[in-house]
Design a protein around this nucleic acid. Structure first.
Lengths: 336, 336
DNA sequence: TATTGACATGAAAAGCTTTTCACAATAATT
DNA sequence: AATTATTGTGAAAAGCTTTTCATGTCAATA
């Protein structure tokens, strides 16, 4: 069943059917009715492949994320916001997850190009040199989310990772903690994790506290990695930090879980601070004190930014946006 | 840049370029080398729209899910498994989320049809009459995940919701609980939530326990709804159940959070049982006693099943699969 | 030497739309 | 009444592949 069949049945030409479907030009009342009847009767749906091929536009946006598991990420709210904005502008979404495989990411970029997506929303987690070569003359508009690149000038929407981490650390210090364990993320060049670590260090420095290398641990976003990092921080019963700053809520949850297993109560025996304010954070026991990031705004802005980028008629393009954050005081940190 | 340009540059015909790209017929060493050089030099990628149009096959599978937020669902593992299987068979995924809007679901089915996906994986949450009319002669192969339909004969992969819920309830009864609060899901015809409720009821009945209507509450998958339901169950300090069966881990988390806010400790003062075994369940405080569902198997089987359905040469098609489950005894339930 | 077969290659059709252009018929103007 | 403008319509091109079919070349056979 194609447009030709519809045309034959309705006794009109292909062009007329197209005009009725897309409401792109005047059609006589008579012809319109006949076409609409056939449309309804047959349930015909135009083949978007043909349409997109001819219009050279797919109305599809590729969204590339990088998480081990959908449920373990802080970006689901952003994705909801993106969906809302794009849907309102008649765009579809093609979601792909690289799951931390750099090669997979490259392959997804290739697929996006082959599928002719109109634009890409790229939740980057450690933009690598490899990507630079490919993206340099990629042609399709891309908005980076969650990090910016120094190698390539690309529009971005990010959280204020650096200052938020600094704020979190200062808060712990204000609460009297002078010995803070740190659970960081892999030090990918340019990635959010590195910014958070820098923020932590600066706050430490500005308060004239000595940075103790044995307090610096590393995870990989996952609960399990937070658990393992905490194990290291609590290894020596005689030499433990009084607070821990986990740069991810899920790692904070892992850390608290570990503390519990080792007979330590949070926050009575040790304080734990998170980052992200994921949905369960407020309902955890104890409720997580954390940095609330405006994931909704990030998603919305990123989508809007991409839309404006794709709109050739729009001369004034915003290309960078840094989202706001706030500190949520809940139950996992106590004054020393 | 299209195949014609490549052909011109390499001094061969379009057909030859196509043959080199797809390795579909013998090409002389000389021509192949010239084409490959141009390919590399230009970074040309064939336009899949044209290819798919001509082959009448898109190598794309539509995955329709229905969750309020990606992070709040128990299906992320299934989606990972699906990705693995489909990727291995060279299929792409188009993920769409209806977010519990029945109309949106219909519109997604339309989009899938227009985009000419080769098959659909449908995480159903309350298959409605509306859908029946549309799906009856939809033509594209669909595998339902998470529920089966009585109205329409459609291949499905499901969890054993009924027996799992029965097992969970029997476990609570074995532990000495005779007054169990129930936090269910909307009673959509055919949905998993209803099966779980039936399982609960049967276990109650078989143990000759009287079903108390005031103990039957309802949520909507979300943490918040579990919290609210628990509020109702704990309203009267003199008349409280000794255990609560929440048919979703996230609702269980909400319930425990509520109990805490009301000064009740879990499991000391009240036991709470979950369902799903989401990732955080094991790391919650207390660690959640729950039904572990084999989400990985569900995803794998569903994808395999769809693949076999799409393969016209394959005569023996499995069309139904019920996944195994197990009970995870952790810390949120104690013997009375 | 003449014939057959294998092989590499190119021209052209097919897949389904949208859109431009031209044409005819009607309505409006002078 | 004659010309111009408007309107609705259809034919055909364009968008980019894959694939079939025919052709020409060369090697192998009779």
């Amino acid at each position: 069943m194609n447009i030709k069949d519809v045309a034959n049945r309705a006794g009109v030409s292909i062009s007329t059917v197209s005009r009725v479907i897309n409401n792109t030009a005047k059609v006589s009342e008579d012809a319109r009715k006949r076409v609409e009847a056939v449309l309804k009767e047959t349930g015909y749906r135009p083949n978007s492949l043909a349409r997109e091929l001819q219009q050279n536009k797919t109305y599809t946006i590729g969204v590339l994320i990088c998480v081990t598991e959908l449920s373990m990420s802080s970006l689901s709210q952003s994705i909801n916001a993106i969906t809302d904005v794009l849907k309102a502008n008649n765009y579809n979404i093609m979601l792909a997850n690289s799951r931390y495989h750099a090669d997979e990411e490259l392959s997804i970029f290739n697929t996006f190009k082959e599928k002719r997506v109109d634009g890409i929303l790229y939740f980057a987690a450690g933009f690598a040199k490899k990507h630079y070569a490919m993206l340099k003359n990629y042609k399709i508009p891309i908005v980076m989310i969650g990090q910016k690149s120094n190698y390539i000038d690309m529009p971005y929407v990010i959280h204020d990772d650096f200052y938020a981490a600094k704020t979190a650390t200062e808060y712990l210090i204000q609460m009297g903690h002078q010995d803070i364990g740190f659970i960081g993320l892999p030090d990918y060049d340019e990635a959010a994790g590195l910014e958070r670590k820098k923020g932590f260090k600066l706050a430490y420095e500005m308060n004239n506290l000595p940075l103790n290398p044995s307090r610096m641990t590393q995870g990989d976003f996952s609960i399990e990695s937070g658990y393992e990092a905490m194990k290291i921080l609590l290894k020596n019963p005689d030499d433990r930090p009084t607070a821990v700053f986990a740069t991810t809520d899920f790692m904070a949850i892992g850390a608290i879980s570990c503390a519990n297993d080792m007979g330590l109560k949070v926050p009575d025996d040790i304080s734990v601070m998170g980052f992200d304010d994921v949905h369960v954070a407020a309902f955890y026991q104890p409720p997580l004190t954390t940095i609330h990031t405006d994931t909704h705004a990030v998603g919305t802005k990123a989508a809007e930014l991409l839309l404006s980028l794709m709109d050739k008629d729009n001369p004034n393009k915003i290309t960078k946006y840094v989202a706001s954050y706030s500190l949520m005081e809940r139950g996992s940190v106590r004054p020393l």
